[in-house]
Design a binder for these strands. Structure first.
Lengths: 160, 160
DNA sequence: AGCCCATTAGCATAAATATGCAATTATGAA
DNA sequence: TTCATAATTGCATATTTATGCTAATGGGCT
């Protein structure tokens, strides 16, 4: 489904750049971008994206993205395409190492998406990732060298 | 207010040991423990605790604790008891080590709660934690062995 | 093409959640 | 204590969100 995926992506973009406090508000933003849908559909989209409503610093409710959206890799379907942001801008800025930790700097708001892609690949070289807004931390498996990590990361971050 | 603080604590305990999917359900649990309140009050409590509603693995909605709940430090009382998730529902999936870092994988959305519990225990073996959605990173103090860490963690994660 | 099965989406509405207001109760200062 | 101010709560209800049902759409097959 072309439209839906594009819409989900749009939702993520909006949520990461606006303070949205209810679904109707988000609906309006989506309308501005040409998406036509109802609150019912939006509710289901948000559920699928595992978006949560929480309280912002200003005291208002606010929808926020979480990482780890279960992309059905329930075996059979073999979906699991590591959506590499190939020719696209993936926000990557730099990578540095300290012991068995790698720190990737990204442009603001890109960290979550990047970490998400990395996670999806399930590289055995990486035990886990944590993402902030512009920083991704990777814990390397024991014995993995910097160059080995760079090699696998290059498959999804060509410009690394 | 004695009652309210105790109630908030009770809410945290319940949420970390039960799968609660709506406020009425939580209300019933609180009643069992002797707390009398209305849904309106509960809604306000949850807001104050910054609890969020998300989707569990079973597909049902579920309330989960987030880390960083502003503990109203009303000084003297030194409440702050670490609530261990004693039953098996703490979301724990696996733990791996790399050097002085441990990475705990949890079911989606459980990481914050788990990290919160770990933090509360203030184990000297752990310098600090970082939590994402389904990943907790622990930085071990120097000289702490894997087995030593497992031993202390077992006190709050029996199924580790 | 035509058929099948899964996905998607709207409508209407149920279910769930948040909140204005008023009353009550606690907290603090003089 | 007494007054003033802030916090807490219930009630009733507005607002917000989720969902059962059905129709429409979209691939993937042969």
């Amino acid at each position: 489904m072309k439209i839906k995926n594009s819409r989900l992506e749009a939702i993520r973009l909006i949520l990461s750049t606006h303070e949205i406090s209810n679904q109707d508000e988000l609906l309006k933003e989506l309308n501005k971008e040409g998406y036509v849908l109802t609150q019912a559909t939006l509710s289901r989209d948000l559920r699928q994206l595992r978006v949560v409503k929480t309280v912002g610093t200003n005291g208002r409710y606010k929808y926020v993205l979480t990482r780890q959206q279960q992309y059905r890799h329930d075996g059979a379907q073999g979906e699991m395409r590591p959506i590499a942001p190939h020719n696209e801008d993936n926000g990557f800025i730099s990578i540095k190492f300290s012991g068995n930790i790698a720190v990737i700097r990204t442009r603001p708001s890109y960290a979550g998406t990047l970490a998400y892609h990395i996670d999806n690949c399930e590289f055995s070289e990486i035990l886990g990732t944590l993402a902030g807004d512009d920083t991704v931390m990777l814990v390397l498996a024991e014995g993995v060298t910097k160059s080995a990590l760079l090699k696998v990361l290059r498959t999804i971050i060509p410009n690394i």
